[in-house]
Amino acid sequence: MEQATVKWFNAEKGFGFIERENGDDVFVHFSAIQGDGFKSLDEGQAVTFDVEEGQRGPQAANVQKA
């Protein structure tokens, strides 16, 4: 698992990007966020996640709020 920071997340559209420590951004979809209830992330929030290869490149999976 990697630890990184949420760059931005649009709760209405259900997706955003996580900024990795190496500077690369990773796409995150609300369905990858672990937990119950409304799944959203806040800008600047610390998260841990795995990286999977998606249809359009790397994307976050198993996202957990740190």
Rank of each mutant, 00 (worst) to 15 (best):
M1K: 15
M1I: 11
E2W: 14
E2R: 10
E2G: 11
A4G: 15
A4L: 02
T5G: 02
T5E: 05
T5F: 14
V6D: 04
K7I: 05
K7H: 06
K7D: 02
K7V: 05
K7W: 02
F9S: 03
F9W: 15
F9V: 03
F9E: 03
N10I: 05
N10E: 04
N10C: 11
N10G: 03
A11P: 13
A11K: 15
E12L: 14
E12Q: 14
K13N: 05
K13H: 09
G14F: 01
F15V: 05
F15H: 06
F15M: 05
F15L: 05
F17T: 01
F17M: 06
F17A: 00
I18Q: 03
I18W: 01
I18F: 04
I18K: 00
E19C: 15
R20K: 07
R20D: 04
E21V: 12
N22F: 12
N22Y: 11
N22T: 10
G23N: 08
G23V: 02
G23H: 08
D24A: 14
D24L: 12
V26S: 00
F27C: 07
V28T: 03
V28L: 08
V28F: 13
V28D: 03
H29Y: 04
H29V: 03
F30T: 06
F30V: 07
F30S: 06
A32R: 00
I33K: 00
Q34C: 12
Q34R: 10
Q34Y: 09
G35V: 09
D36N: 12
G37K: 06
F38C: 11
F38V: 09
F38P: 10
K39I: 06
L41S: 01
L41W: 03
D42T: 15
D42N: 14
E43F: 12
E43N: 14
G44K: 06
G44Q: 04
Q45K: 02
Q45P: 01
A46D: 08
A46P: 11
A46E: 10
F49D: 03
E52R: 10
E52M: 13
E52N: 08
E53T: 12
G54I: 03
Q55W: 13
Q55L: 14
Q55K: 14
Q55H: 13
R56S: 09
R56W: 15
R56A: 09
P58V: 10
P58K: 10
P58H: 07
Q59I: 09
Q59D: 02
A60K: 01
A61C: 12
A61H: 09
A61V: 14
A61G: 08
A61K: 12
A61Q: 10
N62Q: 05
V63F: 00
Q64T: 11
Q64H: 13
Q64A: 10
K65H: 10
K65M: 11
A66K: 11
A66H: 13
A66Y: 13
